Simulated scan of single mutants.
Amino acid sequence: MQPRWNLLAATFFIVFSVYGINKLTDIKEDEINNPERVSYVKRFEKALKYAVIVSFFLAVLLSAMTSPFAVLVILFPIVAGALYSIRLLPGYPRLKDITGVKNLIIAATWANGTAFLPYLVASGISFQKVFLIYYFFFMKSMINTMLFDVRDIEGDSINGIQTIPVRLGLEKSRAVLLVLNSTFIPWLLAAYSFGYFDRYLPVLVFAILNGYAYILYFSRGDYKPGKFLDIWVDGEWFYTLPLAMLM
Rank of each mutant, 00 (worst) to 15 (best):
Y214P: 10
F218A: 07
G235K: 12
L201A: 05
W237L: 15
L170Y: 02
S193I: 00
L243R: 00
F228N: 12
N210D: 15
F184C: 02
K129W: 10
Y200G: 02
P202L: 05
I161V: 15
K129V: 03
A191K: 07
R167C: 03
G155D: 07
L209H: 11
A191W: 06
L201Q: 07
Y214R: 06
P202S: 05
P186S: 09
G155N: 08
S141K: 07
W187L: 13
G211C: 09
R174W: 05
L178T: 01
T163Q: 05
N144I: 12
D222F: 00
I208Y: 11
V176D: 01
Y223D: 08
Y196L: 14
E154N: 13
M142D: 00
K227C: 00
G169T: 03
Y239A: 10
Y135S: 07
W232G: 00
L216D: 00
G226D: 14
W232D: 02
Y200K: 01
Y239F: 15
L147P: 08
T183I: 09
S182M: 12
D234T: 13
E154P: 01
F184A: 02
V176H: 05
L132M: 13
V176I: 14
I161R: 13
L177G: 11
F228V: 09
N159M: 13
A175H: 09
Y135P: 04
L178S: 06
N144T: 10
S157D: 09
D198N: 13
D156H: 08
E154A: 13
L180D: 00
F184I: 04
L168P: 03
L209P: 05
L178W: 13
K224Y: 04
A175G: 02
L168Q: 08
L241Y: 14
W237P: 00
V203I: 14
N159K: 15
P165Y: 10
L132G: 08
F194G: 08
T183V: 11
K129S: 09
D149S: 07
P202E: 09
L216W: 04
D152P: 09
L229Y: 07
G221E: 11
W237G: 00
L168M: 14
P225L: 06
E236S: 13
G226F: 04
P186V: 12
L209S: 12
M142G: 01
F148Q: 06
E171S: 10
F238D: 04
M142R: 09
W232K: 11
T183G: 07
G235F: 08
T145P: 00
S157G: 03
P202D: 03
I143S: 01
F131D: 03
F238H: 11
K140R: 14
L229K: 11
Y239G: 10
Y212M: 02
F148N: 08
L189H: 02
A213E: 04
R174F: 05
L180I: 13
I143Y: 01
